[in-house]
Amino acid sequence: MALYLAKRACGLAIVLMVMSFIVFLLQSVIPSDPARAMAGPYAPSSTIETVREEFGLNDPIAVQYGHFLVRVSAGDLGKSVRTRQPVGDDLLRYLPATLELILVSTILAMGLAFSLILLLLSGARSQVLRHVFIALGSTPIILLAVLLAYVFWFSLAWLPGSGRLQFRDFVGTTGFYVIDGLLAGRPNVSVDALAHLTLPAMALALPFAVAVVRSLAGSLHDVMRQPYIRTARGNGLSEAAIVLRHGIRNAASAPLAMTGLQIRLLFGNLLVVETVFGWPGLGLYMTQSFATADLPAILGVSMVFGTIYILVSIAVEIAQSLADPRIEL
């Protein structure tokens, strides 16, 4: 176990290095001039030259990358071109919003997945259900987000669909507003934060839950034809006991692997959802950085997401080995 974690920690470092290197490499092949982008379109050439010196843009790419690595390991991610703030500070400012959204949507996804599994197991009209699942799995995040916003925010006005809070004056200590509200003794803030969280979290959770449950259904279908299920039937176990004790656990491996794959697609979803619902998190920060080709900011957010991704895949692998004793870490 310790060995496994050590191995994966090395893996994390390698992935982050590869990611940053790819972005660095791309930067060197593009014709556009980051110095000009930083200095602004109307800056005189002397200013551009100063910027170039200041950011070390005259050095060869390998040297620049070396400098970059040294700076990053000291915790310095550079300065955002757009906000003119150190990227590290920006990340810290926007990270809590995104983490809060991810956590809430994970909880929501678990609940959704669980109820969908119960629905599946109840055996209700399996053919109809199957096509409903295909339709849900085919809903692009753009449509889902826009639909949720239109129906529950504009039309029914049940839930807010923009920003994190209606209280403009509130300043939290941890950045997780649901908790901050409780800490500050203002439960109405917490409730409002939860209300704001609902729609974006739903938009993130639904596709994820559907993908996992579809893959579980498929793998459960295969598992229920295995000889050991026949053995269990031959031993006179009830069908419910067979599914719960023999089926689900053996079928768990595929949806867990699916979770790992889905997470990669989910980062795109996060960006879309934060944009549609005006959620001031890392996703929105990154989307806005795209427009200005804000390299340090893009790189910084990528690093954070890369770390989250690797941590999640480690958790998935551990879960897989717990579910199936044949998989060793």
């Binding site: 050991y228 026949r230 579910a323 044949r326």
Partner: peptide, 12 residues
């Protein structure tokens, strides 16, 4: 059963 290899639940 005929085939003992698959007839036991691998996760139990």
């Amino acid at each position: 059963p005929q085939d003992p290899m698959g007839a036991l639940n691998p996760t139990m």
